[in-house]
Structure formats: C-alpha cells, structure tokens
Write a protein that binds this DNA or RNA. Structure first.
Lengths: 108, 108
DNA sequence: GGGCGATATGTTTTTCAAGACATAGGGAAA
DNA sequence: TTTCCCTATGTCTTGAAAAACATATCGCCC
C-alpha cells in the first residue's frame, strides 16, 4: 500500500498546481511554450490555456512572451513567474516529505 | 491565497480516501449504509459501490452487513474497517497540519 | 515575398466518471 | 400476507473536463 496526494493553491479557484509547476519549469529552461509543451507531451493549446487561466486568476503575468522574430518568438518567466516556481518547489518538497513521514508513522 | 490538498491510499489503484472515510464514519454511527448515504447526501448505490470497490481491491471486508430483519437490515464495521477508519483519521490529521505549516512557511 | 517557428484564440469532439434509474430479494412484525 | 426498510446489483444517462481541430498573426531570414 502506498500514499498518494495532490497539492495546489487556490485564489477562489485553482491557480497553481503540479501541472503548471512542471510547465513553467520546462518553459524556463527551453524558452518557449511550444517546446515545453512538446517535451511534456501536451498540446500547445493546452499549455497556453493553463498559463493564461492562472494569470487571469492571479491578476499578474507569469510569462513574458514575444511573437515573431529570430526563433519565431518565445517565452520567459516574469519575476512573479520565477517566484511562484521557486516557492511552490520548496513547498511541495517540504509537504511531500511530511506526508510520507506521516504515512509511515500510521501505516508503516 | 490558500492551500488545498487531497490524500489517499492506493494498492495499485485508489482504495481509501476522504469519501470512503466519511462514509465509514457515518455508517459506524448510524448502523446502515442507507442512513449514512442519506446523511451524506449521496445515493445508496453510490455508497455501496464505493465500499464494494475498496473491499475488492483491499482483499478484505470493511463492513459486515445483514439483510432483512427488525430494521430491514444494516451494516457495521469489521475490525479491518475500524482499523482503516482510525488510522486514516490520524494520518489525515497529521498530514493536514504539516501541509498547512509548510504553506505558511513558504507563502505566508 | 514565401517559409519557418512561435504566440494567440475560438470551436468542436471525445471520453470518462458521476449520477440517475431500475429491479430483485430478505426477514421481522403487524 | 402485506408493509417496511434494508442489502445487492445491472444499466443507462448526462455533464464536465480533456483533447483535438481549425485559423489568424507576427517577424526574421533566405
């Protein structure tokens, strides 16, 4: 038997979770939504929509994008984007450890 | 902004989570699946199916039921049922506290 | 100016889980 | 022997989220 969990943040509605976390991470190191989506095996439409919805609900931009140009365009994280990425990463790690520990304590 | 989470146990597949937890709790103090379902605002079909699926996957009974008789029948927890209920309750509490604490630490 | 690789959205289709509906049967008690 | 309240299942409907499909536009570069 094993424990499973999902963690996310809400601002009335879902704004930041595992999916967006991985997506932003990938965008940060690839420089484009398209590349990131591809590498995570999802469609550009899906990736873009996810970011857009979060930005709307948070009331702030997570990505700075450009259209056209040398590489056709691209995207990079705004300071807010980097902030969320970093914080969520640390939070997720701490919470995950604690959950596993509690599981071991009560079911191990 | 607030943190949200879901915790559950798997044995290959989902076997025990919040839903079953509340259901067993209610059954324990009401003595019937029907009454419990009603009080949780779900159908008997749904409640019964949930228990059945878990029992199948766990390979052990969670409820001892009887058909017909004075109250029409009824259900009570087996020792295994009580064990899961108690353990999950404690685990859920400990994990919840830890998650909230981590959230405060990183986003508070 | 056409191709390439991006962003940016609207629309439609699929899928899959949740819920609703239906039916059979058991046993005490009036 | 009928009524009542329950267990026990099969099946059908539906509704929402995910995926697929379809366009439009932008700007460098050859």
């Amino acid at each position: 038997m094993q424990v499973r969990y999902k963690l996310w943040l809400e601002e009335g509605e879902h704004v930041f979770g595992e999916g967006l976390f991985e997506l932003l991470q990938e965008i940060e190191q690839r420089g484009s939504i398209n590349q990131a989506a591809r590498s995570l095996n999802m469609s550009y439409r899906q990736a873009w929509g996810q970011v857009k919805k979060a930005e709307l609900r948070l009331g702030q931009r997570l990505l700075a994008t450009r259209v056209g140009g040398e590489a056709g365009g691209g995207a990079e994280l705004t300071p807010a984007g980097r902030w969320f990425l970093q914080r969520f990463k640390e939070f997720k790690h701490a919470a995950g450890e604690a959950i596993e520990a509690a599981f071991r304590q009560y079911f191990g």
